[in-house]
């Protein structure tokens, strides 16, 4: 954990990724859809930024755009500084030299992210040969060492296997190993454990924590699972309908959430240690449809505290507890306290 903790998204000297005013639009048959709107975030060395959101929140598209991986009908505007390079204007060659090398991404779908007809070891050594110019022998040694580090038993034997011969947990570990091979400054993990069983999830999360702490890698953890974020993130950004609605220190987000959406999310997640009996708390309504967003606050149709001012889009502004929130109301704490 970095000593100088900052909650606001101000770039500092140890900033690895600095996203400013990112907007992502998709051209679809039914018109243009704005998946991410005017989003600003930074992540520093050795820091884990958790991105929490549901479907349609734009949490994945933000970072696909960041690494130039948008689908053909997508367009990103704004500024994404990675070191000295603006990733949005960088050419394909620059992006290729960064992706998988200085910035790595681990996806949810570990089955399709590996080429099925190539041995695992070969796929990993290729990364090193391409980015680091190692010869085959040195690359293989480095790969075996990395597979061992991600706790893959019998790495020499697994390297000779094809992806389908490995279990889901092992494949995800191979993907992480692949991402870490070049000791990236930034690791983006998009729902890295969603497709895995809980017992395997724990291993993968430990692994990511280890990478962050011992290599000082900046980690962006994208997930819908609040428990995963609670265990790993230093700061958390909560996204809704393409915007950050709350940003803050992990302890503050979980103990004193400021935005009604964050409060609702925490209240409606069933936990192993909560009180039983009665109904679960819910957030009414459906997740936002990006093609039919209300003009003001996107969460307003589902919000219990909506007032007239919610018809205007709320800006992201400082909130109690030192974080940021995109909500016009400052009196929520007293209301929720009175209610409970």
């Amino acid at each position: 954990m970095p000593s100088t903790r900052k909650t606001a998204d101000v770039a500092g000297s140890d900033t690895v990724l600095d996203i400013q005013g990112l907007t992502v639009r998709f051209e679809t048959a039914d018109g243009e859809v704005q998946a991410v709107s005017d989003l600003s975030l930074t992540v520093a060395k050795g820091e884990c930024l958790g991105i929490v959101g549901e479907s349609g929140s734009g949490k994945s598209q933000t970072f696909m755009a960041t690494l130039g991986l948008l689908a053909d009908n997508g367009r990103a505007t704004g500024k994404v500084m990675f070191g000295d390079a603006d990733l949005l204007t960088a050419n394909e060659a620059t992006l290729n030299s960064i992706r998988g090398n200085r910035a790595a991404m681990v996806f949810q779908d570990h089955m399709t992210s590996l080429t099925p007809h190539m041995k695992v070891g070969r796929q990993l050594t290729e990364v090193l040969q391409r980015h680091r110019g190692l010869d085959a022998k040195a690359a293989l040694d480095a790969v075996i060492a990395m597979l061992r580090r991600v706790q893959i038993p019998e790495p020499e034997r697994r390297a000779e296997m094809y992806p389908h011969e490995l279990s889901g947990g092992l494949r995800q570990r191979v993907m992480i190993a692949m991402g870490l091979l070049c000791h990236p400054e930034l690791l983006i993990a998009d729902e890295p454990t969603t497709a895995l069983d809980v017992t395997v999830q724990a291993l993968i999360l430990d692994l990511i924590r280890d990478v962050k702490d011992s290599d000082n890698t900046a980690v962006i953890l994208i997930t819908h699972d609040l428990g995963v974020v609670a265990g790993l993130a230093d700061r958390v950004a909560v996204m809704y309908a393409g915007r950050v609605v709350e940003l803050g220190d992990v302890n503050q987000i979980f103990s004193e959430p400021q935005h009604p959406y964050t409060q609702g999310l925490l209240a409606c997640s069933p936990r192993l240690d909560d009180a039983l009996g009665g109904k679960l708390k819910t957030i009414p309504g459906q997740p936002p449809n990006l093609q039919r967003l209300p003009p003001g606050c996107a969460f307003a149709p589902r919000c219990p505290y909506v007032i007239a001012a919610c018809a205007e889009r709320p800006p992201l502004r400082p909130a109690a507890g030192g974080g940021l929130k995109a909500c016009v109301r400052d009196d929520l704490a007293s209301i929720t306290k009175a209610a409970s």
Partner: peptide
């Protein structure tokens, strides 16, 4: 299984004892 379920509370989640299952 129970020990592996993440708890949405940073303090509890980081402090809780976990039984790690080895192997596949």
């Amino acid at each position: 299984l129970m020990s592996a379920v993440p708890i949405p509370d940073p303090a509890l989640e980081r402090a809780k004892p976990r039984i790690i299952l080895t192997g596949d």
